[in-house]
Structures are given as structure tokens and as C-alpha cells.
């Protein structure tokens, strides 16, 4: 149920993101989804890739500070109101979202929402109870 995500510390300097993506490319690692959170001074890059451990090793080897966390991926139909339904449910259950980002999978039929909750176990249970599809990690890595 849980998907491994890697986070990379970024100073707000030009070219850093490009450097990370080329390191991943050189190591034949595919990026499935990414998001950047930033402040005036620094940013946090979050990545979901097909080969997590290799990505972590490659980036660390190049001197990046890398952290690994788990997130969950919720699949919703790619149509108006798809995200709203999930968020509405989350709000009703009273889950705290630390952060989220989204992407649309290749077929274009479904959107995938990546969530980090403060209480991940409860989030998984309640979202499933409410009938949402939570993707297995292997499904996400190979999307």
C-alpha cells in the first residue's frame, strides 16, 4: 500500500534540478512523479522513481542529501470532481495532509494522487473503507 518516495535537499541555485535529472538518466532511472516545495532559501524535491534504492544511492554518491519516506498513491478517474471527492472524504474523516501532488497516468484515464498524511495507517484504512483505490507500490513504480 505504501510507496517509497525520495526527497532531496536543494539550495535555490540554478541548474540543480537539471543535475539531478541527468544523474537519474545516467543510471537508467525513470521518474514517475515529482514535486518541489520551496522557500526563499531552499527547496525540497520529492520524487517517485522506478528504482528507489538505486536512485538514492546515485544521488547520495553525487553529494546530495537524500531522505526516504513513504507516501500513498490514490487512483481516481481523470474527470471533473475526481480530486474533490478524495479531498472531501479526507476532510470528513479529519486526516491531516502534510503534502500532496498529482499526476495523470499514461492511459490518461486515471489520475494518481500522492499523499503524505500525519497518520498514514489510519489514512489507508479509512480511504479504503470509503471505496478509494490505493495503488500498490509496484503499480506506481511501473506506471
Amino acid at each position: 500500500m505504501r510507496v517509497e518516495q525520495i526527497a532531496v535537499f536543494l539550495e535555490n541555485k540554478s541548474g540543480r534540478l537539471a543535475e539531478i535529472t541527468s544523474i537519474l538518466a545516467e543510471n537508467n532511472i525513470n521518474i514517475r512523479a515529482l514535486s518541489v516545495a520551496d522557500t526563499a532559501d531552499f527547496g525540497i524535491l520529492r520524487l517517485i522513481v522506478d528504482k528507489v534504492d538505486e536512485a538514492e544511492k546515485a544521488l547520495k554518491g553525487k553529494g546530495f542529501t537524500v531522505g526516504k519516506t513513504t507516501v500513498i498513491a490514490v487512483e481516481v478517474p481523470d474527470r471533473t470532481g475526481g480530486l474533490a471527492a478524495v479531498l472531501d472524504c479526507i476532510q470528513k474523516i479529519g486526516l491531516n495532509v502534510e503534502y500532496m501532488y498529482a499526476f495523470v497516468n499514461k492511459t490518461g484515464e486515471n489520475a494518481v494522487l500522492i499523499f503524505r498524511f500525519d497518520d498514514m495507517t489510519r489514512a489507508i484504512d479509512s480511504l479504503q473503507e470509503h471505496g478509494f483505490t490505493i495503488l500498490e507500490s509496484s503499480q506506481v513504480y511501473n506506471l
Binding site: A7, A37, I44, V66, G67
Partner: peptide, 12 residues
């Protein structure tokens, strides 16, 4: 310099 022990994926 950031090291893993003081780095988080959550901005907060």
C-alpha cells in the same frame, strides 16, 4: 550543510 539527520521531506 544539510545532513540527513536534519533533513525532512516535509516543509513544516
Amino acid at each position: 550543510e544539510v545532513v540527513e539527520s536534519i533533513f525532512f521531506d516535509e516543509m513544516k
